[in-house]
């Protein structure tokens, strides 16, 4: 039994490991009530579990409204949050200006794209300003993906993982985090094919589907280096999301990489030195 399972069984915070969540949000969500969305409750959960930092993006894709909410949260809790700039392809002409503001004035560290919400394919020219910006600055881009053969949703076509192949090939300097690693099992298999083909593809573990053996399968397919712990907090509780990694049948070293070290390195954040835990190098 490794450190993570021992700690989880005891219900204690993971104080001896770096936990960096690559997929979080801030604000409220129109579709449902989130009781733990406020900053105080949000950070309280992070403390209880021992999650060091969450990379957050806005629920709202309206610019600059959503990014301003994230900027306030990052400013108020700079030790716990780093910001993703969310940009909306339907306002393509505003993207470059908004990204410059977010990175040069607000200190954001990543870009969040949501082709499903925008109803625009990732390879559509309206997203080009975002990909150009990300590639030029080598900024991580978290992009929502999902695919499922189990239900019909025409909007899913905008966000199937295979649509990212063209982007990964055209922008080899972009660091692309495949949100939800494809989502349902069909999408996960598709995301793995993508990740095997392109070294600039990373897979985010956030998903409400607590399927068994998925983490093991991702590690087996592409190695632990490009698998990143994500939770979708506060869209979802981060606790079971951490649990997927903790109880996976993989080595403790791999768990440490997935839970924090990989993302800290990708975002260029030396959390290990700050926290006196795992180092980032």
């Amino acid at each position: 039994m490794d450190y993570f399972v021992r700690t989880a069984n005891a219900g204690k915070p993971f104080q001896d490991a770096l936990i960096f969540d690559c997929h979080g949000h801030f604000g409220t969500e129109a579709g449902f009530h989130i009781p733990g969305a406020a900053a105080r409750q949000f950070v309280g959960v992070l403390d209880r579990v021992g999650i060091d930092t969450v990379a957050i993006s806005a629920f709202s894709s309206v610019m600059p409204f959503g990014n301003d909410i994230v900027a306030q949260a990052v400013s108020a809790h700079s030790e716990r949050f780093v910001g993703y700039a969310r940009v909306n392809a339907n306002y393509s002409k505003d993207i470059e200006r908004e990204l410059s503001r977010c990175f040069d004035e607000l200190g954001f560290r990543g870009i969040k794209l949501h082709p499903y919400c925008d109803q625009v394919s990732p390879a559509d020219s309206r997203y080009e300003p975002a990909w150009e910006f990300a590639a030029a600055r080598k900024i991580p881009v978290l992009i929502h993906t999902w695919n499922s053969l189990r239900y019909a949703d025409p909007l899913v076509d905008y966000c199937v993982p295979s649509r990212l192949a063209e982007i990964a090939a055209n922008y080899p300097d972009a660091r692309i985090i495949v949100g939800h690693a494809g989502g349902e099992y069909d999408g996960i298999l598709e995301a793995v094919i993508l990740a095997k083909a392109f070294p600039n593809i990373y897979l985010d573990t956030a998903s409400s589907r607590l399927y068994p053996d998925v983490i093991e399968m991702l590690v087996d397919a592409i190695g632990a280096e490009r698998v990143l712990y994500g939770s979708d907090v506060p869209f979802l509780s981060p606790v079971p999301q951490v649990g997927k990694i903790v109880y996976a049948d993989i080595g403790e070293t791999e768990k440490r990489m997935i839970l924090g070290l990989n993302a800290a390195r990708l975002f260029g954040i030396d959390l290990g030195c700050r926290n006196g835990r795992d180092t980032c190098d």
Binding site: A8, V45, R48, R209, L210, P212, V239, P240, K244
Partner: peptide
């Protein structure tokens, strides 16, 4: 847990770490 469709450990953690 909805096992075996879902893993058990994450659901146990949800209760263990609830405030």
């Amino acid at each position: 847990t909805a096992a075996p469709h879902f893993s058990m450990g994450p659901s146990v953690m949800a209760v263990k770490y609830a405030g």
